[in-house]
Design a protein around this nucleic acid. Structure first.
Lengths: 321, 321
DNA sequence: TTGTAAGCGTTATCAG
DNA sequence: CTGATAACGCTTACAA
């Protein structure tokens, strides 16, 4: 029989094939362990079955959980996901996207924390190229206008956290954030200040969004002197974990002496002692939503994902006020 | 000029091209934002530029860090890595490998904790197919004979841990492991018993290798009664973290009352209080080694990776003995 | 060094 | 419903 008929039964073509043929083809395929070559399919169809995911660091559970959500969607849809690591380096990111374009991906998802600024001219050109090749661009957070954006209410979540802490009796705060211009960090800091009180009791320290940066920043703050009863807000749980280490090294008791709160609510934040106050983000759902945005024909921007403050032992209620 | 010359300059062909042509091609490519279609390249060359990585759970930092190592290698070599999640389900794994074969991957890396048993007939057939399509199969741990194996001295590490704990004055232990047949778990349990003493002071409880399984198993053990001064050895840090939760819920003081040790030394184990005793595995290096095994022409099995016991506050030295 | 043309494994169009 | 056959975008002998 002809190649054409075989092809028709093996890929889910709409055309129907007589059962006798269909059966013969299926048996033969099974016997020979035949699997369609997806590269060839891609060249023939002119459209690949790949979703490209960009993360800052795959070893970071924050991105790992998002990736899990993306991959759940891809699995359901029979698509393949390739992952690349930007290391939070814009130039590297640009190179990666250019290389990724060679895959003619169905979609590219930016999960890496990008900066507030619009993409550089170079990046924008690459994104346009992705789109004109038929791919969807998806971003977590705004900033990329040519992308479908999954929005997270960072500001609202941080505001709620600030309010809750204020109500728990705290009146002075140190914020550990990223350098100005990092969108997520900026939003969280702004929201926190709104909620905690514009009175000006808030000192902001800026460093990276990694564990070691958190440790470093906290140590620096301690060097400058942090009075008892202050609450430290790290814009990320990972940063908070670093701060926790610095506080311990300095012999400060977290909770009773200095309070500590993070953001993201990654699993590790529940394991530390005292358990870390944080703001829960539905990361897995976000990954899944990003996948849908990458593949759905019809799509309308969903409501920003709601966040939830989780008060834990690291920020006990202050008796004195 | 001809397509052929263009092709020769764009892909790193060995053939040389006159500089005037080369320049013209490069300029044109840059101007048009042209990027070679790697699917088409793959069909033409008959060999793809993909490495397929299989992990049990990408949200688990253990696998995340391994993935980071694999991706570092792939990045250096200009290869793409696709990740799939087995969820520790053999049937699912089989389906995944079959689907992955369609990519004609240059290599497939099994990082997912596999069982002791040889692969099922079905899986073995798929692996043979991968190999006869020119792909390398790489496995973390033994069991897959047709694969290049990256070996970890789980047994030796666990033995060293057992010895160290014994010397610290412990003489009764509870082990939290996976069901019999899970290779890594079995090795670690056996090693621990060798080191801690064959006297028979060791009770083994078996459940899954997840956090919730650890919590469940520990709760069960506590229900049966665990005397003061016992050390609990969880075959995985993730399991130990679950156990830690159960111990806290039961009001038992970790360290002074019951000691706790894990394995893998994931970052989270240093953040908990008391810090968790564990056995360090160079996960990132292992990922990188797995990548090399997948792509190098010449390869000889390296020495098993050496592990290192990290004694921390969760297993203090017992004064009484 | 460059061009021509065959071929890679599929899919899709268009007649039978 | 089935079968030729021309694409798909690229590589690579083989000639020129």
């Amino acid at each position: 029989m002809s190649l054409a008929t075989a092809s028709r039964v093996l890929n889910g073509s709409s055309r129907t094939v007589a059962d006798s043929y269909r059966e013969r083809v299926e048996n033969a395929a099974a016997e020979l362990g035949y699997t369609a070559n997806i590269s060839a399919q891609a060249t023939a169809k002119g459209t690949s079955s790949t979703i490209a995911l960009l993360v800052a660091d795959i070893a970071d559970p924050y991105f790992g959980i998002i990736a899990a959500g993306v991959m759940r969607g891809a699995d359901e849809a029979g698509l393949v996901v390739t992952i690349s690591v930007t290391e939070r380096d814009d130039e590297r990111e640009l190179r990666l996207v250019r290389a990724l374009r060679g895959q003619r991906p169905r979609g590219v998802i930016f999960a890496a924390s990008r900066t507030t600024e619009v993409p550089s001219g170079g990046l924008q050109r690459e994104l346009d190229a992705v789109i004109s090749a038929g791919g969807q661009v998806v971003a977590l957070g705004p900033g990329i206008t040519s992308a479908r954006s999954i929005l997270i209410d960072n500001r609202g979540g941080a505001r709620a956290l600030g309010e809750a802490l204020k109500q728990n009796g705290y009146d002075a705060a140190v914020v550990l954030g990223a350098p100005e211009g990092t969108y997520t960090s900026d939003e969280r800091i702004a929201g926190f200040i709104e909620g905690f009180g514009e009175a000006g009791q808030v000192a902001v320290l800026r460093d990276g969004l990694t564990r070691v940066a958190g440790e470093r920043a906290m140590a620096r703050a301690l060097g400058d002197g942090v009075p008892r009863g202050t609450v430290v807000f790290a814009v990320t749980d990972v940063v908070a974990l670093g701060a926790l280490t610095a506080l311990r090294n300095a012999g400060r008791a977290v909770g009773s002496d200095i309070a500590l709160a993070g953001f993201d609510d990654i699993p590790a934040s529940r394991d530390v002692t005292p358990a870390l106050t944080s703001v829960r983000i539905p990361l897995e759902d976000i990954g899944y939503a990003a996948f849908r945005a990458a593949v759905d024909d019809e799509w309308s921007a969903p409501e920003p994902m709601a966040l939830e403050v989780r008060l834990r032992a690291s920020t006990p209620r202050r008796s004195g006020g």
